[in-house]
Computed example of a mutant assay.
Amino acid sequence: MGDSFTEGVGDHDPQRPNGVRGWADRVAAELARLEPGAEYANLAIRGRKLEPIVAEQVEPALALDPDLITLYAGGNDILRPKVDIDALLSTYDAAVARLTESGARLVLFTAHDPGGWPLFSALRGRFAIYNEGVREIADRHGATIVDFWRIDDYRDVRLWDFDRLHMSAAGHQRMAIAVLDALGVEHGLRPLEQAPLPDLSPARRRAENRRWIREFAVPWIGRRLRGTSSGDDLSPRFPEMTALGA
């Protein structure tokens, strides 16, 4: 359940629904390898804020009678110009309570530390406050927490896609490992091999930053101003339980 983080944005795969793979697919495939017959659904849609996630995904998820539920939500709310974090956490808490009533094991996530990205670094305090609220909610309801904020590996730019907002294939693989580790599952996933970081000249670095502003930042800000989302015309990748291979 959730937004682009769980949908798999940044882990490009044109052969899969919505053209992405993602950490959740990777976890599901590994669980199916360890337990043949395991099935998986993915209701997440990029751009969704917390309230639409709760309204659109909680009851459909519970109707599938799952043993394990993951929820990542709230990041898109925090990125808006104004946000009531206390109200956001109250909505989050109520959703977590509803999900844990089912008896399924629940996995929650903190958000990544945005301090390294100029466009988002001013929001670092918001994310820190929200993350502490998520940790408290996880403790209160007995949920498993994957503390994205504290995974230092994500300081490596190679774990991020071009847009600097979504994880790359290597980043999604690293998150799949973190999820399986948090669940206490012995698995065979390993970090993806990475090419050495290029030694960019100052001029090339400035050119890359200009391209990022032109191709990502400006369109992203435009959608925020218009109140639209890149996920407006998309449907869940796997709305029903599906047997997923590697």
Rank of each mutant, 00 (worst) to 15 (best):
A73I: 05
A63Q: 10
R48L: 14
G22C: 03
G74S: 07
E59N: 15
A28N: 03
N42H: 06
G22M: 01
A24K: 00
A28Q: 02
P36G: 06
P14V: 10
E35R: 02
G19R: 07
A29K: 05
Y72G: 07
A41F: 11
D67K: 11
P66N: 05
V58S: 05
G22T: 01
A73L: 07
L43Q: 14
A55K: 07
D11Q: 07
G37D: 04
E39T: 15
E39H: 12
P66V: 00
N18A: 12
D67G: 10
V58P: 03
L64Q: 06
D67R: 13
E30Q: 08
G74Q: 09
A61H: 08
R48S: 15
G47N: 01
E39Q: 15
A73D: 08
L31S: 10
A73Q: 08
E51V: 13
E56N: 12
K49A: 04
D67P: 09
E59S: 15
L64P: 06
P60W: 02
E59I: 12
K49C: 07
A32K: 04
P14A: 14
W23E: 00
E51H: 14
I53E: 13
A24D: 01
D65I: 00
T70D: 11
H12G: 04
V20R: 07
A38H: 01
V58K: 03
E30F: 02
Y40L: 09
Y40R: 09
P17E: 06
A32H: 05
H12S: 11
A32T: 09
Q57W: 03
A29I: 02
E39K: 15
R33K: 09
Y72W: 15
L50Q: 10
R48M: 14
P36C: 05
P66D: 01
L62V: 05
D67S: 11
L64K: 06
I69R: 12
R21E: 04
Y40D: 03
R33H: 12
G37E: 01
K49L: 12
L71H: 10
K49N: 05
D67Q: 14
E35T: 04
G75C: 10
E51R: 15
G74I: 11
I53P: 12
G74L: 13
A38Q: 04
D25C: 01
P60V: 04
D11A: 02
G19N: 09
I45F: 00
D67L: 10
L31M: 12
H12M: 14
R46C: 15
A44E: 10
I69H: 13
L68M: 11
E59F: 05
E59L: 14
G37V: 00
P60T: 06
G19P: 08
D67I: 10
Y72E: 12
L71S: 05
E59C: 15
T70G: 07
I69G: 11
E56M: 08
P66R: 02
E59R: 14
E51G: 10
G75L: 09
T70K: 01
R48A: 14
E51T: 14
D67Y: 06
D11N: 07
A28T: 01
A24F: 02
